[in-house]
Write a protein that binds this DNA or RNA. Sequence first.
DNA 1: CTCCTTGGGAAGTGCCACTATCCAAGCATG
DNA 2: CATGCTTGGATAGTGGCACTTCCCAAGGAG
Lengths: 214, 214
Amino acid sequence: MRLSELSARSGVSTATIKYYLREGLLAPGRQLNATTAEYDETHLRRLRLVRALIQVGRVPVASAREVLKHVDDESLGRTIRLGAALWALPQAPDPDEEDPATIAATAEVDRLLRTLGWDAAREIGALSPVHRSLVALVATQIRLGYPCDAETMAPYAELMRQAAARDLDRMETYESDTEMVESAVSSAVLFEPVLRALHRLAQEEESARRYGLG
Amino acid sequence: MRLSELSARSGVSTATIKYYLREGLLAPGRQLNATTAEYDETHLRRLRLVRALIQVGRVPVASAREVLKHVDDESLGRTIRLGAALWALPQAPDPDEEDPATIAATAEVDRLLRTLGWDAAREIGALSPVHRSLVALVATQIRLGYPCDAETMAPYAELMRQAAARDLDRMETYESDTEMVESAVSSAVLFEPVLRALHRLAQEEESARRYGLG
DNA sequence: CTCCTTGGGAAGTGCCACTATCCAAGCATG
DNA sequence: CATGCTTGGATAGTGGCACTTCCCAAGGAG
């Protein structure tokens, strides 16, 4: 299909598609001659993923490019490739090591991981952007005076562990590594908002049950 | 304290604080004379909340103003006030009613709520921005070809219901309605990222257990 | 041959969260 | 009292980002 058809089928303007091509978010089509290029279903699918990343996941274009680079890098092993793609997603800004709230948060997170027996997470530790951003987030909570200690987080962490186990079960249904990594990215960027929406809906439901609708 | 001290203690530049004052995110200080205004601990606390909303929660300034307006509105009842504050938070864009993916998503969400017995959520239905954005998110998943039906979501929803019950328990420890609403906003904007970080950390942990660290 | 379409690149737009500058009024110190 | 800093308020400007507009040369259709 031509660029204009790609545009029509995806609902994305040709100008924007050209912009994504320039930014390297989308592979160029097969060049038929100087003024014609042909695109196929894989381009359409990738374009939809890009749109979802940017519009739903609010991922900046530059980060999206990094993420997709790892998704496409077939030279990496499955685990590394998965980690590389997910770690390229935007995280909370890194914590300030000096800040007393950060020091307290680091201690709480470590205590939490020990309590839960999440040894791999402790081993990876500050190497993982996820770990660092968790510390930064807990520090923010502490700074605002909300209790956010290991005891508070542990039951939530256990719920999230159950969700994660289910995520990986779902991922294992994919054949190729590329599909798996792409689904992991989708899961992180698109399924997490679903989870969040379910969470808020559950809060509304629970609140209505306890206090009524009025 | 003076503006400059408020700035020093919060780590926010005076220029930015003046901007927040202008935008109505922060109440003006007590005016001592033409060139001096005095701020207190409540201003510092509110300023930290504003920063957290904007920087951690990525809430646009205009939305933050709406949210805080409801937090401060003591004329409303507890439930309404809570709902008003949370519904002012930015949500996924509203779904396109025409789109077949949206129609399918609406059906799945309704089926999910019936399965779970979340009758209040069904009753509120499309009135709730949360409900609408859930539909939009499910539609996006469907459009990308990922299964996102009632059966897939139900176990996750049950986990989120447990989390929500815990959230409300925590909220009930607050005395005044204002504190409760503020904590609910903090919970939505700041604790949700904590939950998400725990989720991703759990994925890393689980992935390391299943496939090793290599 | 003429006109419309196509793909590509450079420059411009609009939004948003700040930020720099200016100004007049205090206050502090010598 | 003079000088020079700080303060709060207002206005205009900045930088980043996700597009979007404009223009051009090359095809292809009639």
